[in-house]
């Protein structure tokens, strides 16, 4: 495997005037417990990043520090060019936060709540047209319903609408599609694509749905044990892990399956040996899920050094 293929712009290259997010050596300690032990990553304008990691890895802590809701212990953090710990209201106006809702604003009607929250953004720019926004999250039919009468998925879509009503430059999505049915999920993915492609919104999302991460994210970050153990596209990650691929073929009407770490070499050999007898060839790369599980397993098996080493290699 070539390390060169994986190289992304190094986070230490230049101070990010252009960058939507720039996090360097972020540390967080609660009492004597280190939750974050030096998290470093960045996001360019318009990029969609997915932050993955096991429960308790520090995803929420990281996002809350970036949102300005939590003070960090150490490290440099720049969010849209400002330190979130000192972000003022005009900075706040450019940030969108999709919160996990519970039962807040239960007496408010969908349209009424969005209209009201939109007015707070008026001094800073032009918030969404409310009817357009309601339509964009697929709540037109429910625009005059009370929030307490919405289903779980509808409520979640209202959360998303609240997060983007001020047309943020940077959007934080913490498990956005938990509780969505497949149809709502697809529509939500379209909305995310629309936000990032048309409006050039930078998006940082956390999810446990790896399929979703693969579909939405330009880049995937894996956070485990308080550090980023992987950073790259889904494709680059699976190549980096060199997880086993599956080669399937048939010969003389008989079907074969062979797992291998070196699919190219294996297929070359296969053709050299049997030539034209080979039919129905299929090579299946490991899915992001396989890769992710392998990464976390390696990491948790105490392979922290190896994980850290390959991370450094990548950044060289």
């Amino acid at each position: 495997m070539s390390v060169g293929e994986l190289s992304v712009p190094t986070p230490h290259a230049e101070p990010g005037a252009e960058r939507a997010l720039d996090v360097r050596d972020l540390r967080m300690r609660y009492g004597t417990v280190d939750v974050l032990r030096g998290v470093t990553f960045h996001a360019e304008r318009g990029e969609v990043l997915a932050l993955l990691g096991p429960n308790g890895a520090g995803k929420t802590t990281t996002i809350e520090i970036l949102e300005g809701f939590r003070m960090r212990s150490a490290g440099e953090v720049s969010v849209l060019g400002s330190d979130p710990a000192k972000g003022d209201e005009s900075w706040r106006a450019r940030i969108g936060v999709v919160l996990q809702s519970w039962r807040d604003h239960s007496k408010w009607r969908v349209r009424e709540l969005l209209q009201h929250l939109g007015t707070y953004y008026e001094p800073y720019g032009t918030p969404w047209d409310i009817d357009e926004l309601v339509a964009a999250v697929g709540l037109t039919e429910h625009a005059h319903k009370k929030a307490s009468r919405l289903s779980g998925g509808q409520r979640r879509r209202l959360d998303v609408a609240i997060g983007i009503v001020g047309r943020p430059r940077l959007l934080f999505l913490d498990e956005p599609t938990a509780g969505f049915d497949p149809h709502a999920r697809r529509e939500f993915h379209d909305l995310v694509h629309r936000l990032s492609d048309l409006d050039d919104t930078t998006i940082l999302l956390t999810t446990h749905d790896l399929d979703e991460a693969e579909k939405l994210a330009d880049r995937i970050l894996v956070l485990a044990g308080g550090t980023i153990i992987a950073d790259g596209s889904a494709d680059a990650l699976s190549r980096r892990m060199a997880t086993e691929a599956e080669v399937r073929w048939s010969r003389d009407g008989e079907r074969f399956v062979h797992p291998t770490r070196d699919a190219t070499g294996f297929v070359r050999q296969l053709f050299a040996q049997y030539g034209e007898e080979i039919a129905d060839l299929e090579v299946r790369r490991a899915s992001l899920e396989d890769t992710y599980l392998a990464l976390v397993r390696d990491f948790e098996a105490g392979d922290q050094e190896a994980a850290a080493r390959s991370f450094e290699e990548r950044n060289r």
């Binding site: 809701f69 209201e89 706040r92 936060v97 919160l99 519970w102 807040d104 707070y120 997060g163 001020g166």
Partner: peptide, 15 residues
């Protein structure tokens, strides 16, 4: 409203 997150929403909005 602190418990149910209303306040947090207010905090996430400018002003």
């Amino acid at each position: 409203e602190r418990e149910d997150g209303t306040l947090l929403r207010a905090k996430a909005v400018p002003g």
